[in-house]
Design a protein around this nucleic acid. Structure first.
Ligand SMILES: [Mn+2]
Ligand SMILES: [Mn+2]
Ligand SMILES: [Zn+2]
Ligand SMILES: [Zn+2]
Lengths: 140, 140
DNA sequence: GGATCTCTTGATACCTAGTCTCATGGTTCC
DNA sequence: GGAACCATGAGACTAGGTATCAAGAGATCC
């Protein structure tokens, strides 16, 4: 996945610098969703001397490339999750923070129906699902 | 709608004070989504002497009662929209900010399918639709 | 009406997440 | 190597929100 991120940055025409490589590796080691602060703390613990702005800058780049997405958790906080550039919906475990991508599963039909009823022309949609992941369910 | 908000506050067992009544009236006059800062500016222009914290406090109360919902706009900013306590999805005009409530339109089936595929037990979902409202469409 | 108790208020300080600016330092290209 | 161009970290700044607190309503009891 680090590879994937670096490739995407390369294709985006930006430089593959040290800080970007290190941060990409840190993102790979993360499990579930994380905040920019989490990442910065990871970097700080390893004495990487990476600035806060650099973290936000990389997250923005990755998010433009669709490899990371910012989500709004039910408790009102924000988090980032790594994801594939092709799928756009997420399932988030409220217990451990694990996330999975799900494809549209019929959402297109729902938006078409909503468009018909409301008269809106729908250009974007966002669906976020929250619950318990298989591990957390079996761990009772 | 002001009536509805005041009733809800009453039922919630909090006091119907001057600042709360005034803010409820200001919310009613708003069109589309608004920020806490918008509301505070409205109050300021009318020399209502209402504090910033009071605005956030009321928005939180109303949001607990389901009469207002906080949404995350695609540009990353936050806004509040007035809504009915029974419906949970919103259509937001990217041009003028107008919002409408839509009911589930088949979302339940989508979440069931996502649960089946992922093994998650889904407890909450959030769907936000963005586009152009009928007015903005016809205004070219 | 007054005494009292509780809730609410506005001011202010504080906080988290994110952006902007800028001087410095690496990279790329010739 | 040198010039041009990014990218960097530090630090100031912003938006949106929360915590604290002394003072001011509002409700309750008499
Ligand atoms: Mn995804
Ligand atoms: Mn719903
Ligand atoms: Zn889990
Ligand atoms: Zn519109």
């Amino acid at each position: 996945m680090t590879e994937e991120m670096l490739d995407a940055l390369d294709r985006a025409g930006v430089r593959l610098t040290g800080p970007r490589r290190k941060l990409a590796a840190l993102i790979e080691r993360r499990e579930g969703h994380f905040t920019a602060a989490d990442l910065l703390k990871d970097a700080g613990r390893r004495r990487m001397g990476i600035g806060r702005a650099t973290v936000f800058r990389l997250l923005e780049l990755l998010s433009e490339q669709g490899l990371v997405e910012r989500i709004d958790l039910p408790d009102g906080t924000h988090a980032y999750i790594p994801c594939e550039p092709t799928h756009h919906h997420h399932l988030v475990c409220l217990n451990c923070g694990a996330t999975t991508d799900v494809d549209d599963c019929g959402i297109e039909a729902v938006t078409r129906e909503a468009a018909r009823r409301s008269g809106f022309k729908i250009e974007q949609h966002r669906l976020e699902l929250f619950g318990r992941c298989p591990d957390c369910r079996s761990a009772n």
